[in-house]
Computed example of a mutant assay.
Amino acid sequence: MNEVSLIGLFGALAGVGVVAALLMFGFFFFVKGKEDAKMKVVGLIFLAISLRLAKSIFYFLFEGIAPIGLALGFFGLASIGPLAYLLFAKGENLKNWRFVPHSLLPIGGAIVCFFVSPSPWETVLYKFATGLLALYLVGAWMAFSKQVKADKITGVWYQRLLIALALVWSCFVYQHLSGDMLAYALGAFFCAIVVYWFFFLSLRTPVAMGRTLKINLPDEKVELVQQAFESVGVYKRPGITINELSRDLEIPAYVVSKAVKELYGKSFPETVNHFRIKEVKRALVDPANSNLKIESLAYDVGFSTPSSFYYAFKKHTGVTPTGFQKLYELQSA
């Protein structure tokens, strides 16, 4: 098989890798993302990988629209790192992530690649983004190593995701170091192999496919979680996460999650807001609090901002805090 045929073969196999990455994006973002916001980030990571992997196909097979391929490829490459760091460093506090500074390079670099192509600046930008990706992955790994894992299987799955991202990065480095077109195509093929591996790994993993694990909860652990909410009032701690409570109680995070579900029929964040709103409702109708601002009551029960409080209150009660007070007064008259 001659060199041109090999390049075509590796390009076709890389194309299948793009399809696999897009399938994972759709599944994690639109299906699993309904249950867990972190899975949406996983989906976006694979969308970014698919864009970077597709760049080679655009650039070498569709020369007429190469600038579009270069721009989309750069946007994908420069987005992988920030998304990985978001996933592993922020965990459950995704809403507190300030993503704008991290989006400047993907957006700005993509614009430059589109308008200046062909230009040596493209190579400079791609190499810079590849180097920066390494730093993001190191930060993500350090954050992951400090986390309390929900359970062994979940921890292993996320660990393998990080390994897959590191392997994808090494494929990009190989492409930069390659001196000819065949080696570059081979790098794209290696990247696709990593995507295949993680795709089939996810098909066999309960974390990804949603198969639940049977867990017998010790009564004493359930009681600890119940006391934390009903006696200690752990929900009053601003920004409390399941990992923090897990460390406080010295029990695994997945046990905390299952205990909360068993006790209250809700997820951990839903339960936290349930107790917060319940206490605010009592305070709103207490005459002793008539001179207090509604926002101060929200801060007292653990809400960090007025906007998050008003949103949660309306979601749980269907009315605003002021509307709730008026309804109470009408019913009490």
Rank of each mutant, 00 (worst) to 15 (best):
P82A: 03
F30W: 15
H102M: 13
G17Y: 03
S290Y: 09
S332V: 13
I57H: 03
E63T: 13
V42R: 09
T322G: 14
G26I: 08
A129S: 09
F313C: 15
A288F: 07
P306A: 09
S119E: 05
L22S: 04
R247V: 01
V194M: 13
A208R: 09
N96T: 10
S5D: 14
Q325P: 03
W169D: 06
E122Y: 04
A110M: 06
L245A: 06
E329N: 01
S307Q: 14
G139K: 12
N289C: 07
V207C: 02
S290M: 11
Q227Y: 07
H176W: 07
Y126N: 03
P218W: 12
K32F: 00
R160T: 11
G265M: 09
L330C: 08
E270P: 06
I49Q: 08
P106N: 07
I68A: 15
T317D: 01
P252E: 13
L133Y: 11
Y299E: 12
D300T: 15
H274I: 01
I68S: 02
G323S: 11
D36C: 10
V319K: 13
F99W: 14
G43A: 07
R52L: 04
F275C: 10
S117T: 09
L217N: 03
L9K: 00
E230W: 01
K278F: 13
L133Q: 06
L13A: 13
A21R: 14
S231G: 04
F200L: 05
F189M: 10
V100T: 08
K149Q: 08
V31F: 14
G210W: 11
W97P: 05
A78K: 04
L217R: 10
T130D: 09
P306R: 12
K266F: 05
L87M: 05
F198T: 02
A333V: 10
Y264V: 00
T212L: 09
L6N: 00
P252L: 06
S308C: 06
S257P: 07
T305L: 13
G43F: 08
